[in-house]
Amino acid sequence: MLSAKNAKVVEATLPVVGAAIGDITPRFYDRLFAAHPELLRDLFNRGNQANGTQRQALAGSIAAFATALIAHPDQRPDAMLARIAHKHVSIGISDDQYKVVHEHLFAAIVEVLGEAVTPEVAAAWDEVYWLMANALIAIEDRLRADAAGPDGDPADLWRPYTVVTRHQETEDVTSYLVRPADGSAPPAGRPGQYVSVRTTLPDGAHQIRQYSLSGTAAGALRFSVKREAGGEVSGHLHDHLRAGDLVQVSPPMGDIALADGDGPVLLVSAGIGNTPMTAMLAHLADAGSTRTVVSVHGDRDQLAHAFRADLARLTAELPDATAHVFYERPLGEWPAERTGLVDLTTVDIPAGATAYLCGPLPFLRAVRGQLLAAGVPAADIHYEVFGPDLWLGA
């Protein structure tokens, strides 16, 4: 991995670079978008750029990668790299863009750190960057080739889909069943994965968002969209995307998907985080699985709980499944032990369970901690967070 000489330099300068990375990333993005405004217009999430979460995610990934290289010099942090690679492929990041990022990132580093960036320091961090970039490029090339198939074009994975049906799950969650417009079969996805949806907004920008698959049907995919406060894409889809319309959709991506096997499964979600869990439950039910399945979900109340009926129906279809639902402010009578935030200490967790978590970051931190305290190995706890992952390396 990292050469011995440069490893010493990176280890010595990691505290300085890590402390400054919050200043480096804004300058990097300002430089990048000034030189390439089309990237902000048509590739990057403008909302996440405005609120700073994408910038925090970049800082976290670089720091986590460098830290991993120093702590485990003979290992590559493949779990972190896979998560980033799936997201990059889903939105259309290309190999040549890594050179563009390198140019503006290192210019920003020099701007912030000044004379501290000696030729020796620059060379060491240049090696860190290209180790990460080349690893991502290799993973992403494989993902694109697999998604394109033998007759497809890995360079352009976007396909037009026709909206077959639109279903209002709750006041702010809508599901769309879509089929390839050319009548071909959609690419196979794994339960728990997401698709990217590319939307043309009124100002002409082509903005991209990821939405988890909430189920499938013959020759079709179903994704679900929560209208977010101030969300320009989710609001546009809710207001304008109707049955019969065309929409650009990527192949299913995502490294967190239900693994095959016969061991117990624990599905833990909050809010719209139950979207991939619904797909996992549907897959298990369709397969006639006899696995022990425990679903735990937290929401504001019954009206906000999307896929509530699906959870009850799919749990009933599985021979060894239970569901536990927590409401913060339940409407009407509700068990006291299931009122408030999700508390896994009140749930019987099957021995040997593989856990899948999805929801806001504070929720993920809390329930992961409860699982670790209950003796569930960290390797058996998988999580998906919507939006930029600010928890890389966890």
Rank of each mutant, 00 (worst) to 15 (best):
H297Y: 00
G298T: 05
D301M: 11
D301H: 15
Q302A: 13
Q302K: 03
A304P: 11
A306K: 03
F307I: 12
F307R: 04
F307T: 14
R308L: 11
A309G: 01
D310G: 05
L311C: 04
L311Y: 05
A312E: 15
R313P: 02
T315D: 08
A316Q: 13
E317L: 15
L318F: 12
L318Y: 11
D320M: 12
A323M: 05
H324G: 13
V325N: 15
V325L: 05
F326R: 04
Y327A: 06
Y327Q: 14
E328T: 15
E328R: 13
E328I: 14
R329P: 07
R329C: 09
P330K: 04
P330A: 14
L331C: 06
L331P: 08
G332V: 05
E333K: 11
E333H: 02
W334F: 10
P335M: 10
P335E: 12
A336K: 10
A336C: 07
E337Y: 00
E337F: 11
E337I: 02
R338P: 02
R338K: 10
T339V: 12
G340L: 08
L341M: 15
L341Q: 07
L341S: 07
L341H: 11
V342F: 04
V342M: 07
V342T: 09
D343A: 08
L344Y: 05
L344E: 00
L344F: 06
T345N: 15
T346N: 02
T346A: 06
V347K: 03
V347I: 14
D348F: 11
I349F: 01
I349D: 02
I349R: 11
I349A: 01
I349S: 01
P350M: 07
P350V: 13
A351L: 04
A351K: 07
G352S: 14
A353M: 04
A353I: 00
A355F: 00
Y356W: 08
Y356Q: 01
L357M: 07
L357A: 08
C358E: 00
G359W: 14
G359E: 02
P362E: 11
P362L: 11
P362I: 13
F363P: 05
L364P: 12
L364C: 01
Q370A: 06
Q370D: 09
Q370P: 03
L371R: 01
L371S: 00
L371D: 01
L371F: 05
L371W: 03
L371G: 01
A373Y: 01
A374P: 08
G375F: 08
V376A: 01
V376L: 02
V376Q: 02
P377M: 11
P377A: 14
P377W: 09
A378N: 02
A378W: 00
A378H: 00
D380I: 03
D380Y: 01
I381W: 04
H382K: 01
H382A: 02
H382C: 05
Y383W: 06
E384S: 00
E384R: 07
V385N: 15
V385Y: 03
F386K: 10
G387Y: 08
G387C: 10
